[in-house]
Design a protein around this nucleic acid. Structure first.
Lengths: 211, 211
DNA sequence: CGGTTGGTTGATATTATTCAATGGTCGTGG
DNA sequence: CCACGACCATTGAATAATATCAACCAACCG
């Protein structure tokens, strides 16, 4: 557990290596995964101005986390207009991510949501150097996918089985193979524009990571 | 139609009066409502740094909109640290709004989603001076609710009918009556913390509006 | 080994959708 | 003033999507 909802902290966190997820709990104890975090992703921009978040963060695999005091970052942002510009860009990127998540939850079928997740991850992983679509690292459990997309682990399993049976994609023992990207894209029902924007956001993220 | 997805614009828009909604279209022509906008709400912070948004904005009732050139706002933010602070606060507020929306879509039943919408609107309207819970202005159509919460207009209608039959809330001819707020809250299944945060965000919004 | 965690499967129940039709309200033009 | 069309809201019956419950399996780890 990297951060607990409501906990006070002055640290600005960034995942350097490994996989993590951001989530919230409902009163009745169910979990809603808000986003998945990969190497280079900031845990939360909120922490630049606030010391308590409204969500928790948990590691999926072993992680190395970079923690910087938030005043240090704020000094940088306050003094450099280009840093402010980049910060705004980052906010926008996160906003687009939530927007895609809302569209998935609101208007896509279970299969469409999982297809969209695979395609998003393909892009994010490609930006991190994993180009081979038939062997992508994917340590996210079926339970996590279910909690991210408002489904049951059982139903996620059935969709994955159907992907396997139809020769669309295969997820097993922590590695994802995208077999028929075109079909996957059709199942997700993405507009071209969305694809571009996602890629743009990913590249932006990568850019800041390298600095 | 106030703004169309992809359109180029240098204006920073704020709703002064009336109701509007932010939405995206899927490739197959369905609509996902991303949020509802009331008087005092900014249409998008994105427009401070980018001239093309990834969503459209449409009026629900007649609206009066405040449009400011974005360079004007940016000069203000760049020159005043407190303005930057407020901008961050606003970003956070929007983020919490999306987060609640994701939780609704992912983990609440149809009745829970609509109950949550009613409670959220109760707070936002109270911050704007509408204190009488039995007579809240509510021009949002059943179709809009359906598109916001991933439901069918038909199903929204059935949930509303059940609310009416159970004496929980009544929505008719553009006015909402909250009859049993406690029951409504139980149906929504809100954590106390979430209530506080929503209220905080609303007050923040109101604060900036008055300036 | 044995325990734990995550994945798989089948039968059944619930929730929400789809399709199709009816009714109500409001503005508008004849 | 009436008739018409447009746009919502409402309702019923049939169907599809997803959840629930209850097992069982397989891999991994100490």
């Amino acid at each position: 557990m990297i951060y607990q909802e409501g906990e006070s902290s002055n640290l600005f966190l960034t995942v350097l290596e490994g996989w993590a997820l951001r989530f919230a709990m409902t009163r009745d104890g169910r979990r809603q995964v808000l986003s998945f975090l990969l190497g280079g992703d900031h845990v939360a921009l909120d922490s630049l101005s606030f010391d308590r978040m409204t969500f928790s963060v948990q590691a999926i695999t072993d992680c190395t986390i970079c923690a910087v005091d938030r005043t240090t970052i704020n000094r940088l942002v306050g003094s450099s207009p280009s840093a402010l510009e980049r910060l705004e860009g980052r906010h926008r990127f996160l906003g687009i991510g939530s927007q895609q998540h809302i569209i998935s939850l609101g208007r896509r079928s279970a299969a469409g949501r999982i297809a969209q997740l695979f395609l998003e991850m393909k892009l994010r992983l490609a930006a991190r150097g994993f180009k081979d679509e038939s062997r992508l690292p994917f340590p996210i459990r079926q339970r996590d996918i279910a909690d991210a997309y408002g489904l049951t682990p059982v139903h996620v399993n059935r969709v994955l089985r159907s992907f396997r049976a139809e020769g669309v994609a295969e997820l097993a023992r922590g590695t994802l193979s995208i077999i028929d990207g075109k079909r996957l894209s059709a199942i997700a029902g993405l507009k071209e524009l969305d694809q571009d924007i996602t890629r743009y956001g990913v590249n932006l993220s990568r850019f800041e990571y390298q600095q």
